[in-house]
């Protein structure tokens, strides 16, 4: 858990930046990117939780009995799937944005106001 300030700080910063961009962005793709930034920040945070200072990957076939500074593998596995899911999300998001550009003619989110109240 002692990944140090650098990792936590940077991931939180990334997440906050992502949210800020998503909320204030004008262009649809900018919003999507904001969300993606948030995901990336989140993934970094998860990785940094599992980080052991100076630890190595827990591969026992080569070094069968080193147990001390081994990095926790599970968060990394989770992050792998999270990244794949992030990609899928972005793919679907961009597909929708393309269609919106085609149909609405603009990418400015302020124009997307047909459904309200």
């Amino acid at each position: 858990m002692n990944g140090g300030l650098l990792f936590y700080g940077s991931s939180v910063f990334l997440m906050v930046m992502g949210i800020f961009i998503a909320i204030t962005g004008k262009h649809l793709i900018k919003i999507l990117l904001g969300i993606d930034l948030f995901d990336v920040g989140l993934n970094l945070l998860i990785i940094s939780f599992g980080y052991v200072n100076g630890g190595t990957a827990p591969i026992f076939s080569k070094y069968p009995h080193i147990f001390k500074n081994v990095v926790d593998p599970v968060p990394q596995a989770l992050v792998l799937t999270a990244i794949v899911i992030g990609v899928a999300e972005m793919a679907m998001g961009l597909a929708i944005v393309m269609k919106i550009k085609e149909k609405f003619g603009t990418c400015n989110i302020a124009k997307l106001k047909e459904l309200k109240w």
């Binding site: 949210i19 998503a22 649809l28 919003i31 969300i35 948030f38 995901d39 989140l42 945070l45 998860i46 939780f49 968060p75 989770l78 999270a82 899911i85 999300e89 679907m92 998001g93 929708i96 944005v97 269609k99 919106i100 149909k103 609405f104 997307l112 047909e114 459904l115």
Partner: peptide
């Protein structure tokens, strides 16, 4: 449905859904 309303609805659902599920992930972690 690929018409203006559906796309707009889909986009809004996507934005909120993505953020929601990311927070869900954080909770799991």
């Amino acid at each position: 449905k690929k018409d203006r309303k559906a796309l707009e609805g889909g986009f809004k659902y996507m934005v909120i859904g993505a953020i929601g599920s990311s927070l869900y992930l954080l909770g799991i972690i």
